[in-house]
Write a protein that binds this DNA or RNA. Structure first.
Lengths: 193, 193
DNA sequence: TTCATTTCTTAACATAGGTCAAGTATCCGG
DNA sequence: CCGGATACTTGACCTATGTTAAGAAATGAA
């Protein structure tokens, strides 16, 4: 496990939940490092998502493929974020999604059993994850409202403001899909500026 | 506090988190009952959302009003569900939303401070709410995918299957808005059946 | 029981964004 | 540093859903 990897992970744990030295050691030992090459899959449809991943560095997308074979991206995540298919991870049922690396990435991962164990060993972690999911849920509702009621142009502008970094690192095809539009539409929106 | 009200609340707490007799007493004493009449507001835009509400019986909607004065419903909740503006509730900043009763409703409520206190008194509650938000987040992502990538017809059919009870109790205007379409569109969809 | 209000439907027309197809630019692996 | 693969743009045309407007049906308060 790289030094910087550990530190970033702990930073976010400590931010919301007060963790002792001992707890810190226990937590760190529960995670393992992995890395993944650009274009490789971390998860494929039909598999059970075995891990919850923390992205130390890099960039990944999660998407599903509809009956017509079209990919729909619902998440793009970069450094210092969690990624997983939570539904599959927590239910241990086959996933409907793919998770693919858009850049060579460094990850920390933890399995369901190990995480459950960790909750028992360090009950304060429940608080961290409670707040994490609380925030994630609030964000998801915001994004839902935006996709339902705002125009593609507004969503694009908003994304440009909120995640300017993504435009540096992620191909526009993927950003278009994340915004819920076609690459052609995104291209037209950008032209108008 | 009505007997049935208490019981339903505790049922959901105990389902995910094991709560002792003593804990139960503490939890119950932290909630207060309120009721609200049909068409009355539980929360109006600009106010800080002071409470997290558990619906013992009844039905409420949350919505926001855009610049053009159009209402957009993002949540309809009935018996045995939580309702609140979580963003405002947790940040204690003014809300962007309204919460209005669609039926006369019975509620249990708890304030931010009281809830924080309760987390300290009964740390196991963190687990309950962690799982609650986890599930809520997963649902919100599903709904996001559906609104982005499925047709209005598919979303309607899905809602009919998932929440048939809503069609008995909630006017179609509101269901249309919840689905992200106009009442006219919903009417056309229903005619085609 | 009745009438005002709210809810739902229908139809004609408008529009954002999708689809298809083709061409250009850019990137990255050998 | 070259060439095929990937990413991006453009244009013509199409479609799902929105808009406006009007009337019918259902509901609930007096």
């Amino acid at each position: 496990m790289t030094e910087s990897g550990e530190n970033k992970l702990m930073y976010y744990f400590k931010k919301w939940s007060d963790i002792s030295e001992d707890d810190e050691t226990i937590i760190l030992s529960a995670f393992e490092t992995t890395s993944i090459k650009r274009k490789k899959d971390l998860l494929v449809t039909g598999d059970v998502c075995q891990y919850l991943y923390f992205i130390t560095s890099g960039c990944l997308r999660s998407y599903y493929v509809d009956e017509k074979g079209v990919e729909h991206i619902y998440q793009i995540r970069m450094d210092n974020n969690w990624i997983s298919d939570l539904e599959s991870f927590f239910s241990q049922r086959p996933s409907k999604y793919y998770i693919e690396a858009l850049e060579d990435s460094q990850l920390l991962r933890i399995s369901t059993e190990r995480l459950e164990q960790l909750y028992t060993q360090v009950p304060k972690l429940e608080r961290y994850f409670r707040i994490l999911f609380q925030k994630a849920y609030i964000n998801a509702l915001e994004r839902l409202n935006a996709t339902m009621w705002e125009s593609a142009v507004d969503r694009y502008n908003n994304m440009l403001k909120e995640h300017p970094d993504m435009f540096q690192r992620v191909p526009l095809v993927y950003i278009a899909s994340y915004l819920g539009i076609t690459p052609e539409s995104l291209s037209r929106i950008r032209k108008k500026k």
